[in-house]
Design a protein around this nucleic acid. Structure first.
Length: 213
DNA sequence: ATACTGATAGCCT
DNA sequence: GGCTATCAGTATG
């Protein structure tokens, strides 16, 4: 028999650990997004770690700015950024405070509120594609910069909350190079995912773009 | 299934 | 001015 997922929120202490410890521990956890259209729940299946000022792939690498300010604050809060002129992506700040490390939420399985998520992701041909990729995940959940700095340790009824769920066991977790990070030729195998899960996004190496004329 | 390309605007040098 | 923690559409095996 299978135990029901634990619906208590993760605590501040959960996030107040080194990012490489937190990242794999997030797999199988449940993100609840409360919207005017109803709640959406997502079981995390793929994440990526970014280790602050020592990590050239991190938005915090070149210091504190208006955009990345939340990353330099306390752990357990949400950092949302806008990229490629069209998309949003969300991260969870990890400890210790001031290190500016975080976990990018890359993919997950919608376990509740799929009807609401489908309306935001009209191009998805299958439910497993609703949140397959970081920008798709944010779109499906209706997450944008207005949620930057939101507390993920708040109650289930707040705009965003991360519940214990059913954590993946270590034998279910694989790791490998991060997706699309410039200069990260596998030196940092900091992408973590649940083995064989159909909602995990395909790996893409960083592709340098040629300047258009 | 994989491979390539254009779209788009904020961010940082 | 160059770059980007991406996606959707199209082409091809």
């Amino acid at each position: 028999m299978i135990a029901a997922p634990d619906r208590t929120p993760l605590t501040r202490d959960f996030f107040d650990r080194p990012v490489l410890e937190v990242a794999p521990d997030l797999l199988g956890r449940v993100l609840v997004r409360t919207t005017p259209d109803g709640p959406i729940e997502l079981r995390l299946t793929e994440v990526e770690a970014y280790d602050g000022p020592n990590d050239p792939g991190s938005h915090a690498y070149r210091g504190r700015t208006l955009r990345n300010d939340v990353m330099f604050g306390p752990p357990g809060y949400v950092y949302v950024y806008f990229t490629y002129g069209m998309w949003h992506c969300m991260n969870l700040v990890c400890g210790p405070e001031g290190r500016a490390s975080g976990v990018l939420l890359r993919a997950g399985e919608i376990t509740e509120g799929a009807e609401v998520a489908r309306k935001r992701r009209l191009s998805a041909r299958h439910d497993r594609e609703l949140a397959k990729g970081p920008a798709r995940l944010a779109t499906a959940l209706g997450v944008d910069r207005s949620l930057d700095g939101t507390d993920a340790c708040a109650s289930e009824s707040s705009p965003l909350s991360l519940l214990h769920g059913t954590p993946a066991t270590s034998d279910q977790v694989l790791n490998g190079p991060r997706t699309g990070v410039a200069g990260d030729g596998g030196v940092h195998p900091w992408r973590f995912w649940i083995t064989g899960d159909p909602t995990v996004s395909p790996y893409r190496a960083h592709t340098p773009r040629r300047r258009r004329t």
